[in-house]
Every structure is written in structure tokens, then in C-alpha cells.
């Protein structure tokens, strides 16, 4: 099961989501303001719970490259971070990369906010030009 992958294409209101179990990488890219955040993020929670249960000390990298998200997406992100921080506390090496456009202070500050609640993951803020 560990070789499974989850890939969800972006829509106008939801980000592209790539979860490569083999590499241990989880990526979000785009904007996130879906009508129903639990429908978009639900599959990620399920996959993440299953993956972390089986990760067994392997390196995990989560990358967030989001230009915009709404409040329920923020709540969903917080849930993801809690799961990651929990796994890191239990010994799985977890790194988080939070990407934001160099001139986007709002996204940088959101990254800093999330970082404050995380005690065990290695959190990196990355100022980078959008890829597309």
C-alpha cells in the first residue's frame, strides 16, 4: 500500500494535490477556496493518516505553494499540520516547506502563524516566484 499515490488536479477553486507515497512527499499548489473544504481535503486526511501509520521513520516532506486560501481551507491546513507535528513528535522526520511569492506578505505571515504551533517538524519559509 505504501507505493500508492494520490493525485488531484487543480480546479478554479481548489489546489493541485500530489501525494507520492513512495517518495514520502505531499504537495499543494494553487488557490483554495472550495465550496466544501472537507470534500477536497477529506481524501488527503485519510491518505495521510494511512501513510503516517505505515511511514515508520521514513523522511516526509510536505510542500505548500498556495497563493490564496479561505477560512475552512486554513482549518484543513491546521489539521494537516497537527497530524504532521504529531508524527514528528513520535519520531518521523518531517519537513515542511511553505512557499510564498516574494511580495506576498499575507501568505508569508500565514506561514509564520502556522510555524508557531509546530514544535517538532522542520519548518522552512521560502520566498519564490510562482512557478506558472
Amino acid at each position: 500500500m505504501v507505493s500508492d499515490s494520490l493525485k488531484i488536479a487543480a480546479t478554479e477553486r481548489s489546489p493541485e494535490i500530489e501525494f507520492d507515497f513512495g517518495q514520502g512527499t505531499l504537495r499543494f499548489r494553487g488557490e483554495s477556496y472550495p465550496e466544501d473544504a472537507s470534500a477536497v481535503f477529506g481524501p488527503v486526511f485519510v491518505a495521510l493518516d494511512r501513510f503516517l501509520a505505515e511511514a515508520g521513520g521514513r523522511n516526509v516532506l510536505a510542500e505548500f505553494d498556495l497563493a490564496y486560501f479561505n477560512s475552512s481551507s486554513a482549518k484543513a491546513l491546521m489539521n494537516i499540520f497537527q497530524r504532521l507535528d504529531g508524527a514528528a513528535a513520535a519520531g518521523t522526520p518531517v519537513s515542511v516547506r511553505w512557499l510564498h511569492a516574494p511580495d506576498d506578505d499575507t501568505m508569508r505571515e500565514f506561514g509564520e502563524d502556522f510555524q508557531e504551533d509546530l514544535e517538532h517538524v522542520v519548518f522552512t519559509l521560502v520566498a519564490a516566484e510562482p512557478t506558472d
Binding site: 473544504a37 472537507s38 481535503f41 475552512s72 482549518k75 484543513a76 489539521n79 497537527q82
Partner: peptide, 8 residues
């Protein structure tokens, strides 16, 4: 499958 954001 419905997922509750306030599950925790």
C-alpha cells in the same frame, strides 16, 4: 465520505 474539519 464526509469529513469534519473540527474532528479533532
Amino acid at each position: 465520505m464526509s469529513f469534519d474539519l473540527f474532528d479533532a
